[in-house]
């Protein structure tokens, strides 16, 4: 890919052919306000907030505009400023003003662009305010869908289509009545949604928000324990408690994606009924034991069971390497080929 240079607001920026102006700006650490763009998805060009002026005459949308060598881009042209300001003001005039109790507070793209554009109460007062009052869809056990906060950026729809290929949701109705919807506006739990939550994490506002989410005090990098894929996770920890899970975007296995279990099934970690030590049955009842005790007992029983009376069933929840070790152990140590794996059943 050949390298090109473009100018954004007087700054020379290097870029590669095939990039969009927005991508080039972001790669150089420049912020061009935007709402409907997401690096994992094809650009939609619908929010119109990333508007720029090209070569001093043409209004263009930077998320869809391919870079060209020698291109001159302005993000502060008066016409650009006006379109951007009106667009953001319109969004805010139609958005609930419940920021302090909103899940997205502090991490809200709408707040960010509103702040960048400089929305004032005085300006906003000129507008006719109109906020939807659609009941919140709480049917999904893991997240809520609040259409009143939705800015119709379509990121969730594109995620469900482009990344997950599920298509549980789509745009429905049209114009000002447009809404992200399942078939006939049924609750999302009745759709083919698999609750992966990929849309939830990409929602720039809190139209889609996890239930009972808590801000973590620190993050711990880990590997998801549910299956052998080995997705990288960032566990959000508060005190000694895991309060959230996010996909690890740096992990080459999942690049940030997670399934419903990995993303939402973390509450077992701090569950009061979770087993924390091995249990050994003594006199008909299970009693807590130490790992040494348990492993000694297993070794003893295994030693007496070599040959074909032994069989091993390996699990998909452990890694390939661990599975390899199990079959090696079964064949070489236990002396039998009776080895199978749950994924074969």
């Amino acid at each position: 890919m050949s390298k090109v240079t473009l100018t954004i607001d007087g700054l020379q920026i290097p870029a590669k052919e095939g990039m969009t102006v927005l991508e080039a700006a972001q790669a150089s650490g420049l912020y061009i306000p935007n709402l409907c763009n997401h690096p994992d998805l094809k650009p939609a060009g619908l929010c119109r907030v990333c508007v720029v002026k090209m070569d001093d005459w043409k209004i263009a949308i930077s998320c869809k505009l391919p870079v060209k060598d020698g291109m001159v881009i302005s993000t502060e042209d008066p016409e650009v400023q006006q379109i951007r300001k009106s667009t953001v003001e319109l969004l805010v005039a139609n958005h609930p003003m419940t920021c302090l109790t909103c899940e997205a507070d502090g991490d809200c793209e709408l707040q960010r662009v509103a702040h960048y554009v400089g929305i004032t109460q005085e300006n906003l007062n000129r507008y006719r305010r109109s906020v939807r009052s659609i009941p919140i869809d709480r049917s999904n056990p893991f997240f809520d869908f609040d259409h009143n906060k939705c800015i119709l950026c379509g990121i969730c729809v594109r995620t469900c289509d482009e990344l997950q290929n599920i298509n549980a949701i789509d745009y429905a109705q049209r114009g000002v009545d447009s809404i992200i919807s399942t078939l006939a506006n049924k609750p999302i739990a009745e759709s083919r949604c698999e609750s992966c939550g990929e849309c939830v994490i990409r929602c720039p506002v809190a139209a889609l928000a996890p239930k009972g989410a808590q801000e973590p005090m620190r993050e711990v990098k880990s590997i998801c324990s549910y299956c052998g894929v080995g997705c990288g996770v960032m566990l959000g920890v508060r005190g000694q408690k895991v309060v959230s899970v996010e996909g690890d975007r740096d992990n080459p296995v999942n690049k940030g994606s997670l399934c419903v279990k990995g993303r939402f099934g973390y509450r077992f970690i701090n569950h009061p009924e979770r087993l924390k030590t091995p249990l050994i049955k003594k006199n008909g009842t299970l009693e807590e034991a130490s790992w040494d005790e348990a492993l000694d007992l297993i070794a003893e029983k295994f030693s007496n069971s070599k040959g074909d009376k032994f069989a091993a069933l390996a699990s998909a929840r452990i890694t390939n390497e661990d599975n390899y070790l199990i079959q090696k152990f079964t064949r070489a140590v236990m002396g039998t080929n009776n080895i199978d794996h749950c994924a074969r059943l």
Binding site: D170, A172, S181, L183
Partner: peptide, 20 residues
């Protein structure tokens, strides 16, 4: 729903188009 099954389109798409 039946149209979705027949055509192979997602249900949400059928409604998306119909409601447009």
């Amino acid at each position: 729903l039946e149209i979705a099954k027949t055509t192979g389109l997602p249900e949400s798409r059928v409604y998306a188009v119909a409601s447009f």
